[in-house]
Amino acid sequence: MNIFRLAGDMTHLASVLVLLLKIHTIKSCAGISLKTQELYALVFATRYLDLFTDYISLYNTLMKLIFLVSSFSIVWYIRHHKIVRRSYDKDQDTFRHYFLVLPCFLLALVINEKFTVKEIMWTFSLYLEAVAILPQLVLLQRTRNIDNLTGQYVFLLGAYRSLYILNWIYRYFTEPHYVHWITWISGLVQTLLYADFFYYYFQSWKNNVKLELPA
């Protein structure tokens, strides 16, 4: 465990807590894409299949449980909570995210490290996580005005991915056999998707203006 990895996990945890805090306190999910949250729940469900079979560390197990519980409860809140669901803008959140699931699964069948159910589900979750943010980014482009919490949520997600890339670089130079192209490439693709959001996020922060994405 290196500092980049720990910082990445803490940033990822913070992004989820910011989102839960937003939804739980102001009872609103305005600007949040349910589709992205559903994809994240599926990512964690297919990645943490080894939760009860391979014990790595208390930290690892605890974080997996937190991510699973939080992602599914966010989906529940947006879909079923009587007040929150009213603020969900389903007319704007129209990204056909099911079109992301199948290609990721087919790709996982073709490009993986081992042709076993667990490995294919794990690889599928990597590819899916790389594209899971797309519905959210499309929604942000549509709704134009981005409220602070949503902006912070996406920013923290991007920061977690960037820190993970630093973690992989660090591990590559410190652990002799640490080479995982699939993890690195899908993680890089995912981080690049945030690049333009980061650009506009910093522009708005520097010029102290409201964050707006170009149409």
Partner: peptide, 10 residues
């Protein structure tokens, strides 16, 4: 702990 295997990441 699985060392070197990226499965130890979240």
């Amino acid at each position: 702990v699985l060392t070197g295997d990226s499965k130890d990441e979240l």
